[in-house]
Each structure stands twice: as structure tokens, then as C-alpha cells.
Design a protein around this nucleic acid. Sequence first.
DNA 1: CGTATAATG
DNA 2: CATTCTACG
Lengths: 286, 286
Amino acid sequence: MTMTITTSNLNGIRAAKRKGFEHWAQAHTPNVWCMQETRAPQEIIGDIYGDLAREYVDAGSIASVDELNTIADVCKIKGRAGVGMISDMPVLETRIGLPGLTEDVDTGRWIEADIKSEQGYVITVICVYVHAGGLVGDIKEDQKYRFLDTMTERMRQLQDEAARGGKQAVLCGDFNIAHTPIDIKNAKANEDRNGFFPRERAYIDRWIDELDFVDVMRELAGDIQGPYTWWSQRGRAFDNNTGWRIDYQFATPELAQQARGFVIDRAPSYDARWSDHAPLTITYDI
Amino acid sequence: MTMTITTSNLNGIRAAKRKGFEHWAQAHTPNVWCMQETRAPQEIIGDIYGDLAREYVDAGSIASVDELNTIADVCKIKGRAGVGMISDMPVLETRIGLPGLTEDVDTGRWIEADIKSEQGYVITVICVYVHAGGLVGDIKEDQKYRFLDTMTERMRQLQDEAARGGKQAVLCGDFNIAHTPIDIKNAKANEDRNGFFPRERAYIDRWIDELDFVDVMRELAGDIQGPYTWWSQRGRAFDNNTGWRIDYQFATPELAQQARGFVIDRAPSYDARWSDHAPLTITYDI
DNA sequence: CGTATAATG
DNA sequence: CATTCTACG
């Protein structure tokens, strides 16, 4: 009676497919799979979802392809962002877009699904792709912080709902922020670099300290250095494990307590990878 | 005592190199090689010329790499057009750009070299890349016709020089025009298509009838259907030999009379090719 | 460094 | 349909 949830930034669902990410799908078949940076139009995502459904059938986790529930939101700007989710568990409701966000350039970054566990619990799973942010002083920097502000408000609502005894929630995605020095190989050298600014890191502090969200993987792993979920494509970053932990699952407290284990699937070699991010899978006993 | 001259549109000198065009260089080592659509910056062309020089040394046609004479003109717009020439025969003078052309967007389309044959004759070899032309009514259409007008003027000068007993000339390149129905697989279907417009074909008529230039390959081959020098990358055009003859060598009459044979090296298979154009090589007895 | 679009052929 | 460039990461 467990639910495994995977989050992974695909860096292009077409590229991931070319590199064989469906083999990973067949080998792992997470119950819920949150994907970021699909970077493809709806039709293509639909086709690839069909392929994934066949892998799920072959793996025996569903009986026929139409049993795989799928959602996707693409970005208005072609080839950018894009988030999706597939689930072999019942999806009661889906919601697209981050509530309260006025800027319509920020499409393809937030989807929600209410999913029912085998034991009958309904939890809200959110798939988010936070802006990378561009250079300091850039227009996109403001956009990123407005997005972070708005999602913090949405997280407050989710937390209130959970605290009132309503649905528990888990926010999965690529946040493009390493939280503390143990979440980045070279903290000193990156103190004034995008993705590790104090101003960015403070959002994660706030989600944990003020909103009572739990950084599930960190809770399970304890305060060790790493593991990382992303390695730059430049130089030998992957081979040297010069990585960042920027992909997370943030859960409301009751759900977080049900977490039983996690896997960050750092592939055996650079050649065996289908994305610059490694998938983060957590198993919940619900 | 012959001089072989090759003309070939490379469709990107970097792509051609990836596909092994230097093996062709070693196997054929034409005395003069006119290349169109290099589509790369000077430094990169310089490096690749170095590689070609090594092939010429290995083939025994020159003793050391610095004996290969090279010229290149790139387009002001990055990644577009670009023409180059290499010669293992002495180059007395080089001239870059089409004289009389005011538009400076038309760079990387015309270079001239005065080359001395073993018997001591000096001939002017020109490498030209005529505009493909874009859609009808396009701004680029006008540009193409202005280019054709200007080069017709330059050809008149060259012809005058040759007729006066001065240097003979040969104009080698991708003209992006099929001359008559025997120069195109499907004349009927292409009568109102770019590259086979009556207005375009009339330029070649004029060069031959008024300016006394000789379409050397056609003169050698006679009025047979084909052969072609270019096949579209779409569909199975190459395998079906749905081609166009748009690469030519136009020579002044005395030089044309010295032509002894030609080869259009249509590769054995699609996979063995390093460009969508086939190289046209003509041997002159001078 | 790699995945995308867009322009050109 | 292939080759570039540019944007973004």
C-alpha cells in the first residue's frame, strides 16, 4: 500500500526519449511521475505519453494503455519550460497554472492533481518548474521572484487545507535553488551565483520554518553532504560529482511522516543518462 | 599538362568535413577547387584548409602544406553563403567581391583568382554562389536579379579581355538556375518554380548567346537528359535521381575548346555523400 | 554543453 | 530535410 512519486527535469521530452527514458519508465514505473522542461508541443507529449503507457502495460502496472492518467501544460513560448504528470492511480481532479499568477508568460510551470491512494487517501500532487532566472538585474529575475512569491501564497493555502484535516499535499519539481551548503558541491564559489543567492535560499527556509513543509529527501537522508540532483553539462561536472540539489519534494507534515525511502538515480555513467537532472523518487506509505 | 577544376557547393564546410569530404580531397586532388556555401567563419575555414593541405601532401600533389594556395570570402551575415578556392598551382592575384555590386549584404559570393598553368598560361578562375532567391515578390528576389545583372556586366569585361587575346576565364559555381528542360528532372512541374523561371533561365541564354561563354559540361556531354548536380534533401529525391543541374563551369571560347572531359561525382549512395550537391570536375588541357 | 526555435536553402 | 544561428539553461 505505497505510492512512489518521481520528479525529474527531462531537459526536453524528445531528447529524453531519444536517449531511452522509456526503459527507465519500464524498470521503475513510479505511481506518479512529475516531469519538468518537456519543451515540446501537446501533440508530441501526447504521443510520448502513449509510449510510456505501453511501458507501464509491459511492466504489468496497468492492464491497458488507457488506464494511465496524464496531464500536461506547455509554455506559450515554443520550446520553453513545460510540465507534465502521469499517474497509474486514480486522478480525481487536475488544475493547470499557478493560482494568482497574472503573467501569462509563466505558462507550463505549474500543474496540480488530486490523486487517490490505494487506502483511499486523496493527496494533492503538484508539479512545478521554477524559473532559472537569467542574469542579475535581468527582467527575468523579477519574474522569478514574483513566481516564488505567488507560489509561496499557494503553498500557504495547501498547508492550511492539510492542517484543517483536509488533503495532504506534496510539491515536486525543479526549484532551481540549492538550499544550504550541503546541497551544493562548492558553496563558497557559488555564494553570489544564480541558484544559490541568499534571497533565493530564504524562500526554502520560509516554506520549511513558517509553512511547515518538509524537505522529504533531506529529512530521510539526514544532514549529510549531498546527494545532488543536477550537474552542469559543461566540463566534467558529472564525473567529478560537482552537483547541485535543486529538485525536491516538499510535503505537508502528515504526508512527510509517511515517507519510507528515497532514491536519486544518478546513472552509472554520463553516457547512460537521459537528462542533466537525476530523477528523485520517494515512497510514501499511504 | 592538364588543369582539373572542381566546383562544389559544400552546404557547410564543417558539415562536409564531419562527413569526410577530405577523403574525397585526397582521392581527387583537383588542381583548383571552388567551394560554395562554406557557412563558417574565416578561422574555421583556415583550419579546414590546413587539413585539406595535409591531404594534398599525402596524395603527393604538393611537397609541403604551405604550397597549397587558399582564398576565402565569408558572408557578413553569420552562417550564410561563403565561397572559397584552393589551388596547388601558382596564384598570381586574387580579388574578392563582385565588382560593381553596391549591396554589402552580398558578401561571400564572388572571388576571382588568376592562376598560372604548367604551360605558362594565366587564366582567371571565378568562384560564384548565386542567390537561391527566396519566394516570389520577396525582397531577396530583387537582390538576386541585381546580382545576376551585375555579374553579367563583369562577365562582359572578362569576355572582352579574352577576345582581345588576354586572359581566358572560367566561371565556376552554384548558379541556382537549371538552364533548359534537359537540366531538370521534371521541367513541366517546375516551370513556375524558383530556379527554373524563364526570367532566370534567360540569363544563361544571354551568357551563351550574347557573351559567347560556353557551358563546358553541356558541350562535352551533348544534349542528353541530365546529368544533375543537386538533389533536394526532401523525400527520396537522390535515390530517384529527381535532380537539377545548377552547378556549372562557364568558360571563354578558347579555354572551353581545351576541355577534355568532365566528371559529376554522384556518390554511390545517399549515405556516402558529404553535400546535397555533387562536385563537377572538368579537365582542361592548358 | 546541449536542447530547443528560426531563417535559409 | 539539413545546416546554420540564437536563446535559454
